[in-house]
């Protein structure tokens, strides 16, 4: 089996320590040689086979931080759009793929998957915000890659969600009073509102499927 080089994009938006370890474990379990690099350097991103855009924090702050590293978002864009490298956005990393977000202030996103990031506001006042904890992920389409994880619990912590414009981009939904898109997909771009790196066995299994994924 060939080598997979994974770049976890570090733009100072949250803890990437466990993401790195979870990807290393997934590589080991798949018995694939490769490397997991935490980086903000365009040269490393150009060499990576798979990219991971993690993130916790507020939408606009994360977007500004991503943009503030010289050449970073340009290199990711080129690697993903021109070279077709698969990318996984996690939590805010997923939300940043939207056209815009409304957390605290209206802010532009990368616009890679159309839709906007809106407040989760359940009608049932007994439901708490943030949506924090383990919840089922219902994978909608059977692309033979992720759908065998249908119904597994993953760990969430968020107050905003990705309201996708095109339902074709919805890979999975999760119920919190009403269903919201919990994983999105478009060509070689995938994103999860949940944290696979914090979701124990289900999470490692998801990461393994992302590593094997050939869009």
């Amino acid at each position: 089996m060939r080598n997979i080089n994974i770049a976890i994009i570090n733009y100072e938006c949250g803890n990437i320590h466990s993401a790195r370890k979870a990807f290393e474990l997934a590589l080991t379990e798949l018995d694939i040689s490769g490397s997991v690099t935490v980086t903000n350097e365009p040269e490393t991103i150009f060499k990576a086979d798979k990219l991971v855009l993690p993130g916790v924090g507020a939408f606009s702050e994360c977007f500004n931080k991503l943009k503030s590293v010289k050449g970073l978002s340009e290199s990711i864009t080129e690697r993903v759009h021109d070279h077709g490298a698969p990318i996984l956005g996690i939590c805010i990393g997923l939300q940043l793929l939207a056209d815009k977000g409304f957390e605290n202030i209206e802010s532009k996103g990368l616009g890679w998957i159309s839709g906007q990031v809106e407040n989760l506001c359940p009608d049932d006042k007994n439901l708490k915000i943030p949506h924090m904890g383990w919840n089922e992920v219902n994978f909608k389409r059977d692309d033979g890659r992720f759908s065998d994880l249908n119904g597994e619990d993953f760990y969430f912590v968020h107050s905003y969600y990705f309201n996708a414009k095109d339902t074709d981009n919805i890979l999975a939904t999760t119920n919190y009073n009403q269903p919201f898109p919990s994983a999105l997909i478009k060509n070689n771009i995938i994103g999860t509102q949940f944290h696979p790196e914090k979701s124990q066995r289900s999470g490692v299994e998801f990461i393994k499927r992302f590593l094997m994924w050939k869009p």
Binding site: N15, H17, S18, K21, A22, L25, Y155, V157, E197, K198, S199, Q200, G203, V204
Partner: peptide, 11 residues
């Protein structure tokens, strides 16, 4: 904390 986060993929 560091060693725990390396071993346990949970919050």
């Amino acid at each position: 904390v560091r060693r725990t986060a390396e071993k346990c993929f949970m919050p």
